Computed example of a mutant assay.
Amino acid sequence: MRPGTGTKPSARVTATAYDGHRRVGSVTGAAGTVLRLPVPHPRLWSPDHPFLYDLKVTLADGRSHDSVGSYFGMRSISVAKAGGVNRIELNGKPTFLLATLDQGFWPDGVYTAPTDAALKSDLQLHKRLGFNTVRKHIKVEPARWYYWADRLGLMVWQDMPSRNGGAPGAASDAEFDKEVHEIVDQHISSPSVVMWTMMNEGWGERSKQATGELADSVKAQDPSRLVDAHSGVNCCASKGDSGRGDVIDHHLYHGPANPAPDATRAAVDGEHGGYSLTVPGHIAGVAGGQDYGDGPTDIAEMTKTYVDNTRLLIPNAAAGLSGSVYTQISDVEGELNGLVTYDRAVLKVYPDQVRDINRQLIAAGASAGRPAH
């Protein structure tokens, strides 16, 4: 805790953790020093059990004191061998990160949700449909969005906003790198955030070497999370694979992609799907309508298409794939491939069927590496 102006050298900080009303740990020390708060027998955070401790921090100098309340979650995210290949593990157990691509557009605010309830609603829809992860695509949300991910229990695969293309120069390079580290520092306390993505499909990428160096520096800044150096390294404007980061990430429409883990990294499908169902009366009045090919014609066909496509991932998860990202949760202005319309008024799939296949896929990933019975 950094002492403020006028704080006396004798000022003391006390941090106390609570499980409900029960105190479970406390630490006191000098202001401005690193304190470690022990929590015996911790209750771990996960999408199925998003447990959060309450936290109270006080600053006292003998005559007066100040206090602030907050919360925290305890979890680990790592890459480790299971079943002979590298896989993503949450709290030491193989876990399949099943996400949608979430760009966070809104018809009445574009990049700004109209209300807190709206901000929460897209995450609630992820839970309703059986996803355990959300890939926040090329956007950083307000702190309240991460609060709801923490509370509801969704792992967050957080992208860095992309740069413009071309050759922006050394000053722009330095500014981009600085802002990446600021984003990490801003959201480093959210237990839901489990992975940082440096580049998407090479948009604005300087070189694979620069991307690898940035991935290394972010990993050094925040070793408690995974780093995805190149999402969609196999396509588009990507400069190639630096070999850095914790995952190999391929994109394929309609897909799914199925990259193989290597000696140091797990493998994920960073984008696939993109099936479009057009719902008249719920489309933004703009040109476009990108749908990655012919789309279904009604909700039943859209549901079957999603289920059949997702079923292809089950043997991949058993063999070594650690995550996938379906494009996408909601329509946006020029893309009609959402599971829900842009105005969030029409859900384009039958939720029970989507949730059932999603649970099967997550279960396949969880059982990977376990001995057969």
Rank of each mutant, 00 (worst) to 15 (best):
M1K: 13
M1L: 08
G4K: 14
T7K: 05
T14R: 15
A15T: 11
G20F: 12
G25E: 08
S26P: 02
V27Q: 09
T28V: 04
G29L: 02
A31K: 13
H41E: 15
P42C: 10
S46T: 10
P47G: 08
P47A: 12
H49C: 00
Y53N: 13
V57G: 01
T58G: 01
L59T: 12
L59F: 00
H65F: 14
H65L: 14
S67D: 12
A80H: 10
A82L: 00
G84A: 06
L90K: 00
L90E: 12
L98R: 12
T100Y: 05
W106C: 06
P107I: 09
Y111H: 11
T112V: 14
P114N: 06
A117F: 11
D122K: 01
L125K: 12
K127M: 05
R128C: 02
G130W: 07
N132P: 03
V134P: 07
V134S: 12
K139E: 12
V140E: 13
P142L: 01
R144F: 01
Y146Q: 01
Y146K: 01
D150R: 06
L152K: 09
G153N: 04
L154G: 03
M155T: 12
V156R: 07
D159Q: 02
M160V: 11
A170Q: 14
A171N: 08
A171P: 05
S172F: 13
A174W: 09
D177W: 13
D177Q: 14
E182T: 11
E182C: 10
I183S: 04
D185E: 04
Q186G: 00
S189E: 11
P191I: 09
V194F: 04
T197I: 08
G202F: 05
G204K: 03
E205W: 05
E205V: 04
T211L: 07
L214R: 15
A215P: 07
V218Q: 08
K219I: 02
A220R: 15
Q221S: 04
Q221R: 10
R225A: 02
R225Y: 04
D228Q: 06
A229T: 02
A237M: 13
D241Y: 13
S242P: 14
H251N: 10
G255N: 08
N258I: 09
N258Q: 10
P261V: 01
D262F: 02
A263W: 12
T264L: 11
T264Q: 15
R265D: 11
D269I: 01
D269Y: 01
G270E: 10
P280E: 08
H282L: 04
I283G: 00
A284S: 12
D291Y: 00
G293W: 06
A300Y: 01
M302I: 02
D308P: 09
R311V: 01
G320C: 07
G323N: 06
S324M: 01
I329F: 08
N337V: 06
V346A: 13
V346F: 07
L347N: 06
V349F: 05
P351W: 06
V354I: 15
N358L: 09
R359K: 10
R359Y: 05
A364V: 01
G365Q: 07
A366K: 11
P371E: 03
P371G: 03
A372G: 08
